[in-house]
Simulated assay, not measured.
Amino acid sequence: MTEARGFPAFPVRSRRRLHTWWGSAWMQAMEDTAVDSGVTRRGRRSAADGRIGPIAISPGRAAAVFDGAFRMTIAVEPLSDNAWGSLVAEASVQSGHLAALLDAFLPDALSVLVPGIGELDTQCGCDDWGSPCQHAAALCYQTAWLLDAEPALLLTLRGRSLEELTTAITQHHANPPACLADAEDAPDTALAAFARPVPPLPEPPPPATGELHLLDIEPPPGIDAAALHGAAATAVTRARNLLSPTQPPRVPLSVTPKC
């Protein structure tokens, strides 16, 4: 189980500008569900006033105390087994994905870690009925600052850890899915296919010797029936002559159409 981690309180006037896409997306998930934009503005100011104590990041939640009185929490839904399997598969595609995460960068391929709109459940001990309230919004902003600097904390908030991801990627490479294992043999199969001799072509069909018959189709309005049947007869005759090497190409001078 991933252990909780504690972070010291941010000092006064610690207003920061997010510069990562995942930190901004975290805040967007909170701001887009706020009933009153004024609450988020007050929360942003409170985040910079040094009134929030140390922050604890543990599996599924972030928690802190506001002014030593109100306890605030942000609950995050853990990754399901299917979502975790997809994350491991995406991270295993390129070794650079894990390296980037270790270097404090979250690749787009691992965006499933970032909560979306409605996936942050805020709670506070104050009397404000809003969700989030001013205090919980302030904690969201400060948590975004932590994520901005260390995106691997998203794994903790999702109930996992960087160590688990590293181990899962190693196991994925050691035991690839059957479809991937079969794909590794594809080059040999392709070479074998190209090495096979080309089979002989089938015998051509016998040349048509019967009388030429055209389908009696009603022409659309405005089309000359005689011209349409004549063009069709010419095309069919040319095709027949081309397929019959024993006969020189002939084009009939006239064909009586069926009207």
Rank of each mutant, 00 (worst) to 15 (best):
M1A: 06
E3Y: 10
F7E: 13
F7W: 15
P8A: 14
A9F: 05
F10E: 07
S14I: 00
R17S: 13
R17G: 13
L18V: 09
T20V: 04
W21V: 03
W22E: 07
G23S: 11
A25S: 14
W26H: 07
V35Y: 06
V35G: 10
V35A: 11
G38N: 06
G43D: 01
A47I: 07
A47S: 04
A47F: 01
D49Q: 09
D49P: 03
P54W: 12
P54G: 13
I55L: 11
A56I: 15
A56N: 14
S58D: 09
G60L: 08
G60M: 00
R61E: 06
A63P: 04
F66V: 09
F66T: 03
A69S: 14
F70Q: 15
R71A: 14
M72R: 02
M72W: 02
I74P: 05
V76T: 07
V76R: 03
L79T: 01
A83F: 01
L87G: 08
Q94S: 12
S95G: 13
L98M: 11
A100P: 04
L101I: 04
L101W: 01
L102H: 11
A104W: 03
F105Q: 15
L113C: 03
G116S: 06
E119K: 02
L120R: 08
D121I: 01
T122Q: 14
T122V: 13
Q123R: 12
C124F: 06
C126G: 05
D127E: 15
D127W: 14
D127R: 15
W129Y: 10
W129R: 09
W129E: 07
C133G: 12
H135T: 01
H135P: 01
A136R: 03
A136D: 01
A138F: 09
A138D: 06
L139S: 04
C140Q: 02
Q142N: 10
A144C: 03
W145C: 14
W145M: 15
L146M: 07
L147R: 00
L147D: 03
A152V: 02
L153H: 09
L155Q: 07
T156Y: 04
T156L: 07
R158Y: 08
R158E: 04
R158H: 04
G159W: 01
S161F: 03
L162Y: 09
L162T: 07
E163N: 02
L165G: 11
Q171I: 11
H172Y: 10
H173D: 04
N175H: 12
P176A: 02
P176V: 01
P177T: 08
C179Q: 15
L180D: 14
D182L: 15
E184R: 15
D188Y: 06
A190L: 06
A192M: 09
A193W: 13
A193Q: 12
F194M: 10
R196M: 14
P197Q: 14
P205W: 14
T209P: 13
L215F: 03
D216Q: 06
I217A: 06
I217Q: 04
P219E: 14
P221N: 06
G222S: 05
I223S: 14
A225S: 08
A225H: 11
A226F: 14
L228F: 12
A232G: 11
A233R: 09
V236C: 07
V236Y: 06
L243A: 15
P245V: 05
Q247W: 10
P248A: 00
R250E: 00
V251F: 08
T256I: 10
C259S: 02
